[in-house]
Amino acid sequence: EGYCPTLKWQQQQVANFSAVRQSLAKHRNHWRSQHLDSNVSMPKSEDEEGWKKFCLGERVYSELDAVSDNENLGVDYIKVGFPPLLSIVSRMNQATVTSVLEYLINWFGEKKFTPELGRWLYALLACLEKPLLPEAHSLIRQLARRCSEVRVLEENKNEERLSALNLIICLVSRYFDQRDLADEP
């Protein structure tokens, strides 16, 4: 009790997500043609470790504590991970989207949920085309189940992590029609 989102909130998230996907489709060609910054080097599709480092950053990947780096005032994306920018995700084909989703779900199966992970999972779900391939179908169900397992262990219902887990469960179950996994308040 207190952890489960209201039906109204869930319906709103599905509507917003649907609008986000439409805008993504509309702007994809524009962003795909933009030059990437020179420091952005996207790993090859099959490079699981490379993608985990790229998305989550070397700090999270290597499980180092966040240390403030006073000498470097700019953001070092190699350390903190690249965010799912449109100029990056628009270049990913469906096979790559599915592979990276699989790599991050593998990661989440063993490690903590972080904001970086949440942003990438959301972005990859936004890029995932319907109808789902059987492989993607199984992956997103695995993702929602893992979110539920982690949510059960949450001690603080005001945690940002709780709302992120609720969001992912909601999108998988209600946007991608996996209703048996939906929260029924």
Binding site: P5, T6, W9, Q12, Q13, N16, F17, A19, V20, Q22, S23, L24, K26, H27, W31, Q34, P83, P84, L85, L86, S87, V89, G118, R119, Y122, A123, A126, N158, E160, L162, S163, A164, N166, L167
Partner: peptide
């Protein structure tokens, strides 16, 4: 709102996610 070109800058997906997460806390 998501159609507005200023919203659809390079970080649009990050903003959409952060807004969705914040909306639960504020609900």
């Amino acid at each position: 709102q998501s159609d507005a070109s200023d919203v659809w800058d390079d970080t649009a997906l990050v903003k959409a996610y952060d807004k969705a997460v914040a909306s639960f806390k504020n609900a």
